[in-house]
Design a protein around this nucleic acid. Structure first.
Length: 211
DNA sequence: AACTTGGGCAACCGCGTTCAC
DNA sequence: GGTGAACGCGGTTGCCCAAGT
């Protein structure tokens, strides 16, 4: 239990960074709660994970956001709302925290977005049966599992494929195009050319009980 | 020069989900 | 299947620093 320890809070110093980096180098990422015990570092697991993910990881890109990144974030935010991890997953080298901060401090101002405006989020993330009039995506022989999130014109869903849980994003109004993104696969283009995903079809009247 | 204000961003917190036993 | 631990996410806080007064 983390509560039994006296963990340090606040900014990390270079010595702490060095200890954490050395530990990750030797043991890999994960098991964050064991790091304090193993290294003597007075940081809780959550803090270690955050520091690694947002700053120390070699995958993290530092420096200013480019025009291309701006454009990509704006478009993805328009479609996904405040799903920062999903957005960040499509902006190479950027973390969810970076994207979120950048949005809140730069892009929202640039676009004149009122910070208090809440992104409309789906109320049925656990109750698909309440969504009978909505378009639903059925996957042949790959049962739909659950809706994780939806905003006005997009949804994130889980489904089973080859016995493993996959996640996909479905966006139906990306400037008249269709975006489909799942683990390891992705497609963006006119709705009329979705050949790569012929195994997926949209069912406007799903039988939720059977899913 | 001293103080105040506000922007930027790293880090924390709370909570929901997933995992392991 | 139940439970506690671990993980991951989004919202929020608070520190640092530059600009303004």
């Amino acid at each position: 239990m983390e509560g039994r320890h006296e963990y340090k809070k606040g900014l990390w110093n270079s010595q702490e960074d060095k200890i954490l980096m050395e530990h990750v180098k030797q043991h890999g990422v994960g098991k964050w709660n064991r790091i304090a015990k193993a290294t003597g570092l007075k940081r809780c697991g959550k803090s270690c994970r955050l520091r690694w993910m947002n700053y120390l990881s070699p995958n993290v890109k530092r420096g200013d956001f480019s025009e291309e990144e701006d454009d990509l974030i704006i478009r993805l935010h328009n479609l996904l709302g405040n799903r920062w991890s999903l957005i960040a997953g499509r902006v190479p080298g950027r973390t969810d925290n970076q994207v979120k901060n950048y949005w809140n401090t730069h892009l929202s101002k640039k676009l004149g977005v009122n910070k208090k405006e809440k992104i409309k989020t789906c109320q049925h993330s656990k109750s698909p049966s309440t969504k009978s009039n909505d378009m639903a995506l059925n996957i042949k022989s790959n049962p739909y599992k659950e809706i994780l999130n939806c905003s006005e014109n997009s949804e994130t869903r889980k489904f089973l494929q080859d016995n493993s849980l996959q996640e996909m994003i479905i966006i139906d109004d990306f400037e008249t195009n269709f975006l489909f993104a799942g683990n390891g696969i992705g497609f963006y283009g006119p709705s009329s050319s979705i050949e790569p995903f012929q195994d997926y079809f949209v069912d406007p009247y799903p039988d939720w009980a059977a899913l």
